[in-house]
């Protein structure tokens, strides 16, 4: 036993039953904190079945121990039974820290449980640090529409819970030499039924936006809804997903599922190209950690240029045809 409480993560599973990528992101967050504190990393899996391959992935990702609640009734995420499992852990294992991804499920389960066990909970963190002496978790998150960053701590309540913004953590190379113990736990008795009857599930036509390497985003500066099409075509031609600013979505030019920003999705693609995007702070909060940011906008003072790597001052519609011309390398070399 180590004297300090452990750092737990919720290794979320997808609707298909596989491990969510966020499990590895959370392990990447937890591992250095545990090393600094001298505590262990434990991964909680709630699922209908957990196989050896998944255990190996979590071990290689940094988990020291994998704690599993397994039952056919836990096949799909539901608040009541999942909360009962997590509460069992909080009661029996007294985690010092519990991290979940700020996914739809994580942002539902974590506050529900935090309310019931009276834990401190910080939403949507983008940075974490730990006081190695006290184990106090320093949780940094954007607030007030991304205008400020706030560092939150939980002085006395335990566990210290936080949700971590997905796609905000680089995943290190797996360390296949790492081994982890697996512990299958007895289910809470009685296991609460799911709160609702699952009627149907429609997979997103493309989950591509969040995982896309390249994202083309249209802002109000493209002028009118009829102008969406050429940008959508361009996105497709370069293998990019299509995103939009809140203004575009609020005007009904594209559905909400395309929205990037604080009230939409957070993305960290290799390439972000913003057409007619001015860069409202709430939009920047959802894309500023993209690897390379290109912006095309008529206003040279637009805030998007402050986070861009390459900025073009000009009209997005007028500029697009130039981009569609294939790069002539001979000409470029001249």
């Amino acid at each position: 036993m180590t004297p300090n409480g452990d750092i737990w993560i919720w290794a979320e599973t997808t609707t298909e039953g596989g491990l969510s990528e966020t499990a590895l992101e959370l392990l990447a967050r937890a591992r250095p904190l545990a090393d600094k504190r001298g505590s262990r990393v434990k991964a909680l899996v709630i699922s209908d079945s957990v196989d050896d391959a998944q255990v190996a992935i979590l071990a290689a990702g940094g988990a020291d121990k994998i704690v599993v609640f397994e039952s056919p009734e836990l096949r799909y995420f539901a608040v009541a039974p999942y909360a009962a499992c997590l509460e069992t852990v909080v009661r029996d294992d007294t985690p010092e820290i519990f991290l979940a991804a700020a996914t739809y499920a994580g942002r539902t389960l974590a506050p529900y449980v935090a309310a019931r066990v009276r834990a401190g909970l910080t939403a949507d963190c983008v940075e974490l640090d730990i006081d190695s002496e006290t184990g106090e978790l320093l949780q940094t998150r954007p607030a007030i529409g991304g205008n400020i960053m706030a560092t939150i701590k939980t002085p006395t309540a335990r566990p210290q819970m936080a949700t971590i913004r997905p796609n905000s953590t680089p995943i290190p190379m797996p360390d296949k030499s790492r081994k982890a113990h697996i512990s299958r736990r007895q289910l809470p008795s009685p296991l609460p039924s799911p709160e609702g009857r699952r009627v149907s599930f429609v997979p997103s036509e493309s989950c591509s936006l969040k995982n896309a390497d390249k994202v083309v985003v249209v802002g109000r500066g493209i002028g009118k809804p009829a102008n969406i099409e050429p940008f959508a075509e361009f996105a497709e031609s370069i293998g990019a997903a299509l995103g939009a600013t809140r203004e575009v979505v609020d005007r009904g030019w594209l559905p909400y599922s395309h929205q990037i920003g604080l009230s939409g999705k957070t993305i960290t693609p290799k390439l972000y190209v913003g057409f007619g995007v001015s860069g409202a702070i709430q939009h920047l909060a959802g894309m500023r950690s993209a690897e390379t940011i290109v912006a095309i906008n008529t206003d040279p003072a637009a805030p998007i240029f402050q986070v861009a790597d390459f900025g073009i001052v000009g009209d997005a519609m007028a500029f697009l045809p130039a981009l569609k011309k294939p790069l002539d390398t001979k000409e470029a070399a001249r």
Binding site: G120, T151, I152, I293, F305, Q306, D309, I312, D315
Partner: peptide, 27 residues
């Protein structure tokens, strides 16, 4: 249970390469 320990302004800014494309010729 939680306390705000501090607040600060997010630091931003990358080195941005700038080009102007006001006309089709410049594009």
């Amino acid at each position: 249970p939680t306390r705000v320990a501090k607040t600060f302004t997010p630091k931003a800014t990358r080195e941005c390469v700038n080009r102007t494309a006001a006309t089709a010729e410049e594009a």
